[in-house]
């Protein structure tokens, strides 16, 4: 993905095509404009999926959920390349400017019902991308929790930005509607860096919300590595 040197391109919206999702009622299938089969996952399914993971894997469910999101994101990124790169622009995504790719990515989220995605590149030079996702799926089905619940999307975003950047990136959720935030926030950075941050966060006192800004500042080196402060405890319900 180019960060600006590529020539400016202005193709029509792809995901807003009126035939983006076409259902064949005789076959009982729904496909995208490029022929990928999709299906609707209801809240019931997602709750059941999450509950089954918790039952089967216990405390590891957060890692498993994130891994699921990562696998999903890897597949999604390939489809995104096919739809936007190959089909729409007849070019590789790497030949397009970052702004172009991010616009189509946000529209892909929007039209697939994954939520409203905003990408903040303020800290790009420091190796950090911040993604904000409003109306994300998992926080909408978990009423409240003592920890962020959108591991699926963290894995998903990590995989997509790894694909787009050609680097090994990962993501961590740093704000969650289940803990009172308006939308989910994710910090995306090099995988070892995210892993180290996750380990650091595990040291937080139980039922403590560590603010997005606190995590970001620590990653940017603006606070001491060992410093860990949180806001008022919240009740664990999940």
């Amino acid at each position: 993905m180019s960060t600006g040197e590529a020539s400016f391109r202005l193709r029509p919206g792809f995901y807003s095509r009126p035939d983006f999702f076409v259902t064949d009622i005789v076959k009982g299938t729904t496909r995208t404009a490029t022929g990928t089969r999709v299906c609707a996952l209801t809240n019931d399914f997602l709750i059941g999926f999450r509950d089954a993971l918790i039952y089967e894997t216990g405390k590891s469910y957060r890692k498993v959920m994130k891994r699921c999101g990562r696998r999903w994101g890897e597949q999604f990124a390939k489809r995104f390349e096919k739809e936007i790169g190959n089909y729409l622009f007849k070019a590789s995504l790497s030949e397009l400017s970052a702004g172009t790719v991010h616009t189509y990515l946000a529209e892909a989220f929007n039209y697939h019902g994954y939520g409203l995605l905003k990408i903040n590149l303020t800290y790009l030079e420091q190796g950090i991308i911040v993604a904000e996702l409003a109306h994300s799926m998992m926080p909408s089905i978990v009423s409240s929790s003592d920890r962020p619940v959108d591991m699926l999307m963290a894995g998903f975003l990590g995989a997509i930005f790894s694909y787009l950047s050609g680097q090994d990136l990962d993501a961590i959720q740093t704000a969650c509607p289940t803990q009172g935030a308006e939308s989910s926030l994710f910090v995306i950075a090099a995988s070892p860096w995210i892993a180290e941050t996750e380990t650091w966060l595990l040291k937080a006192p139980p039922h403590t919300v560590v603010a997005h800004e606190t995590i970001l500042k620590r990653m940017l080196g603006e606070t001491l590595p060992g410093e860990l402060t949180g806001s008022a405890p919240v009740e664990a319900t999940s």
Partner: peptide
Amino acid sequence: RLVDHFQAM
């Protein structure tokens, strides 16, 4: 397909 998309772009 055009206006909303271009505004975002």
